[in-house]
Simulated scan of single mutants.
Amino acid sequence: MAATELTAPGQGRGLLDVLANRYLLRLIVRKEVQVRYRGSVLGILWSYIKPAVQFGVFYVAMGVFLGLNKGMENYAVYLFSGIIAMNFFNEAFGNAARSIVGNGNLIKKIYLPRELFPASSLWVAFIHFVPQVIVLLVACVFTGWVPNLWELGAVLAGFLIIGIFALGLGVVFATANVFFRDAENIVDLLVMVATWASPVLYVWTMVREAAPWLVNLYFLNPLTVAVELFHYGFWHPTVTSGGTWEIPPHLFSVWTPAALVISVAFLVLGDVVFRRFEGNFAQEL
């Protein structure tokens, strides 16, 4: 009998195992959704309530008190399109980073591809992202949203950037969190900073005016690019003039490809780090 190649116990093929175990992925996603809303009166309605409250607070604080809605047509659409983009990232990244420790009891009992857990967090975040997009689309239609293929492609590109980047960062911090529980505090800080480090509540030109030397570094943040792509796809078709907003130079020719490359690089890094240390997860947990 020909000898078969042996693999080290507890080690898998990383993200390839996720693709090969789609049935298990669906089970984990279903379990995560059920656990989250167990005992909840409103259930999935929280996917509408939370962004609605966020939007109300930010609109009053930034739009009314600070006057950002003045001179900007349909500022509400501009603001909400950025909010749902960041909500998608924050939930996918935060839950993915906690997914291994959160499922520690299951990981210690049986072996299954461990990257299924952060991948399932991305899918759960997508489930909550869809209702928010529906609300945004309704608002866009009422404000005259008639997008072309280029603008729809911008939304798709922004969605891919956020998903890939969130999963990559989530896998890295999910690994770190097993060995250093302080990683959760870093995740909380990054989630808090992410909204303010991207043009969600303000216009990117404010960065250019306040610190011109910072603009290139600012757009090396994939989330900045993704939010601007959401603005271009959702908000831009609803206005007759940009007002205080203008399309960032080289958004499509330079910054979007760069954001995709950076996001994929983080995903590859996360996969390598995860596979390197996952054999020790059970004993550390």
Rank of each mutant, 00 (worst) to 15 (best):
93 F>P: 14
239 V>S: 11
176 A>I: 03
185 N>K: 15
206 M>N: 02
278 E>D: 02
48 Y>A: 14
12 G>H: 08
138 V>Y: 10
220 L>H: 00
150 W>A: 02
109 K>T: 14
112 L>D: 06
251 L>K: 13
191 V>S: 08
223 L>I: 06
205 T>C: 07
7 T>L: 14
275 R>G: 00
8 A>N: 14
117 F>W: 09
25 L>Q: 01
242 G>M: 01
150 W>H: 03
261 V>S: 07
90 N>G: 15
268 V>F: 05
114 R>S: 09
242 G>T: 09
124 V>W: 13
101 V>M: 12
30 R>E: 12
234 F>R: 13
52 A>C: 13
267 L>E: 07
224 T>H: 04
256 T>G: 02
124 V>M: 09
275 R>K: 08
203 V>M: 02
156 L>I: 14
265 A>R: 04
261 V>C: 01
274 F>K: 11
74 N>P: 09
188 D>L: 15
183 A>L: 07
198 S>I: 04
130 V>P: 06
197 A>D: 14
105 N>Q: 11
45 L>F: 15
32 E>L: 00
113 P>A: 00
255 W>Y: 04
204 W>A: 01
173 F>P: 11
270 G>R: 05
41 V>S: 07
176 A>P: 04
190 L>D: 15
170 G>M: 00
223 L>Q: 01
223 L>M: 07
237 P>K: 02
179 F>L: 03
149 L>M: 03
232 Y>S: 07
45 L>P: 07
235 W>M: 08
2 A>V: 15
259 A>I: 00
197 A>P: 12
148 N>I: 09
266 F>C: 09
232 Y>L: 11
277 F>D: 07
184 E>N: 15
45 L>Q: 06
15 L>E: 03
233 G>A: 08
79 L>W: 10
97 A>D: 14
29 V>G: 08
26 R>T: 00
223 L>W: 08
244 T>A: 10
